[in-house]
């Protein structure tokens, strides 16, 4: 599809569904980024691990405010709002 949109998925409480959706959003060739801004690091389970691995394979930028999210680029909440300004759609989940 032409005219790729920039979409940010903000992971909050429902991590599994947020990651699954983020991976699905790559199917329309849009530029998807994931920000874990929730209270917890991504729970290590088979589904989340697979989705994170798949997102990395799709070159989806992954950011997290939790250092424990080793597969994500560490960031702080204070800089997230400015980063989000560049996106066409922001999807808190």
């Amino acid at each position: 599809m032409s005219d790729a949109k920039k979409i940010a998925v903000l992971v909050q409480e429902r991590q599994g569904e947020a990651l699954r959706m983020a991976l699905g959003l790559t199917l329309a060739d849009d530029k998807v980024s994931v920000f874990n801004i929730g209270m917890q690091p991504i729970e290590a389970n088979d589904e989340n691990n697979l989705n994170v691995e798949s997102l990395k394979m799709m070159d989806v930028p992954l950011y997290s405010v939790h250092e424990a999210d080793s597969e994500f680029e560490n960031t702080v909440m204070q800089v997230v709002p400015e980063k989000l300004l560049e996106f066409d759609h922001v999807v808190p989940y």
């Binding site: 903000l10 909050q12 409480e13 801004i37 929730g38 209270m39 909440m77 204070q78 997230v80 709002p81 400015e82 989000l84 808190p92």
Partner: peptide, 12 residues
């Protein structure tokens, strides 16, 4: 929202 993320983004 528990994280307070909305407040942070709105304030910033």
């Amino acid at each position: 929202t528990e994280s307070g993320a909305a407040d942070t983004v709105i304030e910033d």
